[in-house]
Design a protein around this nucleic acid. Structure first.
Length: 109
DNA sequence: ACCATGACGTTTC
DNA sequence: CGAAACGCCATGG
């Protein structure tokens, strides 16, 4: 991949996510310029697992702060486990105080 | 080139 | 308040 792929950019942003913080697919998509390509971000995460398993994909959730992608983890409960380990309160796959832990890549600039 | 799918988001019923 | 449909972009068959 000579040029930076969509996925590559997603990886960079996700790696920049500070511990104890989370972001949404839409926010990343917007940061990349796609804006409405939030689905691609999720797709990128899926590919990232076999590309970069260390990627903190568990810090990426949907706009509602719901762990929609937990089913892709192994085991699915791992995602919530990691988030709680970072100090993020997660109840029933729902992040508590999502606004407080939310980290926008556009805000980091 | 066309159709189908996907870890989303927003709007509408 | 809850569920469904549409839109949007990229990858795979």
């Amino acid at each position: 991949m000579d040029k930076i792929n969509f996925f590559q950019k997603v990886y960079e942003v996700v790696r920049e996510i500070p511990e104890g913080r989370v972001t949404s697919y839409g926010a990343i998509a917007k940061y990349l310029g796609a804006g409405k390509a939030a689905r691609m971000v999720g797709w990128a995460m899926n590919a990232s697992f076999k590309d970069d398993p260390l990627l903190p994909a568990h810090r990426v959730v949907n706009r509602n702060g719901l762990l929609t992608g937990r089913h892709h983890f192994d085991p699915p409960e791992l995602m919530q486990q990691l988030l709680e380990n970072e100090g993020i309160e997660v109840i029933d796959n729902q992040i508590q105080d999502f606004k407080k832990v939310f980290w926008d890549p556009n805000d980091k600039i």
